[in-house]
């Protein structure tokens, strides 16, 4: 059965592609695809849809993975309140581990984020994963409590790939250090 059907599909696709090629320049085609991409991605621009290729690891005590605030592949994930970088969950790691072959920086900046599941504030350590070129997936930029670079421990603009002899930035984790007390 498959032969005549696949021949027909082949012929249809070949004709369609030929007609498209006749009617459009390659640059024009690219431009229209680009327009579509920009149009789609700019409404709304951020946050965008969940990355289906991401590793989504549920953590007890957090909102479920089906909520944006509980999904580590999304910018709205509660721990990401002061992150600036590419989410390691999208890059082969998780929210608390680096992707294979990278090195986690021992020095870092911290944020204070509220877990909507229990309403408590937690100190989050945004350790960068380093020594491979930038991951480039799931960029997330939130600035709750962020300070300029002259206030380093609270600055997410600093490249924190230090103390490991390689400053090449790949992605960022969001690790719970503990509950925030005394307004830390």
């Amino acid at each position: 059965m498959g032969n005549w059907l696949s021949s027909w599909i082949d012929a249809f696709c070949a004709n369609w592609a030929r007609r498209l090629a006749e009617q459009t320049s390659r640059r024009g085609f690219l431009a229209r695809v680009g327009a579509l991409l920009v149009g789609v991605s700019s409404y709304p621009l951020l946050p965008v849809a969940r990355a289906h290729t991401a590793r989504r690891e549920a953590v007890p005590g957090e909102p479920g993975l089906d909520h944006p605030e509980g999904d580590p592949s999304q910018c709205q994930y509660w721990r990401h309140c002061a992150i600036d970088g590419f989410l390691c969950s999208c890059c082969g790691g998780t929210q608390r581990s680096c992707p294979p072959g990278t090195i986690q920086s021992p020095v870092t900046w911290i944020g204070t984020c509220r877990n909507p599941a229990d309403g408590k504030l937690y100190i989050i350590s945004y350790n960068d994963c380093c020594a491979k070129h930038v991951c480039g997936l799931c960029y997330c930029h939130r600035n709750e409590g962020d300070k300029p670079v002259y206030y380093p421990q609270r600055s997410n603009d600093i490249n924190w790939c230090h103390g490991i002899n390689n400053v090449v930035y790949h992605c960022s984790t969001a690790i719970v250090l503990g509950e925030a007390k005394d307004g830390v």
């Binding site: 009617q23 459009t24 320049s25 640059r27 024009g28 085609f29 690219l30 431009a31 229209r32 695809v33 680009g34 327009a35 991409l37 920009v38």
Partner: peptide, 13 residues
């Protein structure tokens, strides 16, 4: 808007 160095703007097509 640009994509890979192409400006996304109308042409004759």
């Amino acid at each position: 808007a640009t994509i890979y160095g192409f400006a996304i703007e109308p042409d004759a097509s």
